[in-house]
Amino acid sequence: MNAVEIEQAISELAEQPFDAAEFAYEFLRAFGNKETTIKRLRSGATNKSDLGGVLQTNNIHIVACAPGAVADTLNALKASPATTKNKAKFILATDGTDLEAEDLTSGETIACAYTDFPNHFGFFLPLAGISTVKQIKENAFDIRTTSRLNRLYVQLLKDNPEWGTSERRHDMNHFMARLIFCFFAEDTDIFVSDNLFTATIDQMSNRDGSNTHEVISEIFRAMNTSIDARTSANLPRWADTFPYVNGGLFAGSTETPRFSKIAQRYLSHIGNLDWTQINPDIFGSMIQAVADDEERCALGMHYTSVPNILKVLNPLFLDDLRAKLEEAGDNARKLKNLRERISKTTREWFLVPLFAINEAVEKIKDGTISEYVYDPKRAALIKR
């Protein structure tokens, strides 16, 4: 099994009602253990646990414990002679409410709510023979997010076969790019409240997903309607809370593929991830999975590496912000003012139209970028 398949398997396990008697076996199955291996552990033939749990030699010692006994059980697992004798690399204790684990080789530990343990699946990848170099561990959220987006994409094409044709591929890619923006925006203060996009869809959609496409379409229409045109647009009150987004991403048709109950569930799961923990540098990879370069240009979107982004942003405002930070020192008032300015600045630059970015790139090339700043009211570069 690869990392994406493992993430899906343990996510499904975490969503099921906790079964103390079956957890260890289902956990090992999620990491690719074959049925013959599970059968031998279940029979006791290869289960070496001395604590009433499941100990797989050279792998992991797991105990599903009594409520509230997770920490004590983890200590017992670590002190267990069987853990040492059978060279377990990991120990894990859970009561179905909390979960704690330790990598006995590195000494790293995790402690989280049981339902959140899929967020740490990268920690356990050695159980499947996958080397957890630092990059893989740090990108566990990235892998999980991309995996869920892929599942939604596949399900939507299954529910809407016509959207998978060459004639509609551009529309499907455009739709997925809009979703990625909304998921990130609702967790990073671009929208007026946390989880606004996901919560609105959950609240306004039918349970079977039959009107989800209509709800999303109205949200997209709102984000393509300028503030001065809101009254005449007759937007639903719940959609009117979404901001106007320039740059072309929400321009044009707001037609949305239909959602089945399964697709709506996938959408909700993606929205409930904490997108602040996702590396923004992979958004390009996400978008590239659903749109090619030409289509991204048409949407007003480009994926640029972090070093090249900084070449644009440093002279435009980051250098100035760093200078202001140094000037503020320990002055609480100045630091507060700077924080407010940073919040405003990052929000403005997230919505910069493509032509302004292209202009900034050209000025970098000719060496004049330091003479300009970005004016959000004009949506253009102006002389300092």
Rank of each mutant, 00 (worst) to 15 (best):
V4Y: 15
A140I: 02
L13R: 10
F220E: 14
Q16T: 10
K89G: 11
A66L: 08
N75D: 08
F27A: 08
H61S: 08
V133E: 12
E100R: 04
L313N: 05
D50R: 03
S43C: 06
V290H: 01
L299V: 00
A239W: 05
L127W: 03
T46G: 02
R168H: 08
S268C: 07
I143D: 10
G300E: 00
L235K: 00
S49Y: 04
D50V: 11
G329Y: 11
S370W: 10
L338Q: 15
R322D: 12
K383W: 09
T165P: 15
F181K: 03
E22A: 13
A69H: 07
G248W: 00
I270V: 06
A24Q: 04
L310V: 05
N358P: 01
D208M: 12
A113G: 13
E12N: 13
L156R: 01
E100P: 00
D202Q: 15
C182A: 11
S166I: 13
G248H: 09
Y153H: 09
D103N: 14
S217Q: 14
I143K: 03
L381S: 07
K336H: 10
K336P: 03
S370K: 12
A323M: 08
H213K: 06
F197P: 01
H170S: 09
R169T: 15
Y114I: 06
A323E: 13
F191M: 13
G44C: 08
E327W: 07
L51V: 08
I309G: 04
E26R: 12
V361H: 06
R148D: 11
T254R: 06
A45P: 01
E326R: 03
G248M: 04
R296E: 05
Y244R: 08
K365E: 10
S210Q: 10
P243Y: 02
V133Q: 10
R237L: 14
K383N: 10
F124S: 13
F183G: 02
G96T: 05
T254W: 09
K336E: 11
L321W: 03
D320M: 07
A20T: 02
I190L: 15
A140H: 04
R168D: 13
I278V: 08
F350H: 08
L310E: 07
P236Y: 05
L77S: 11
G248P: 00
T188N: 15
T145A: 15
V63G: 11
S43G: 09
A101E: 01
S210G: 05
L152W: 12
G107S: 03
P307D: 04
F18C: 01
S268I: 14
E340C: 06
D103H: 02
N160W: 00
N195F: 03
L335K: 05
S210Y: 03
A88R: 00
I91M: 06
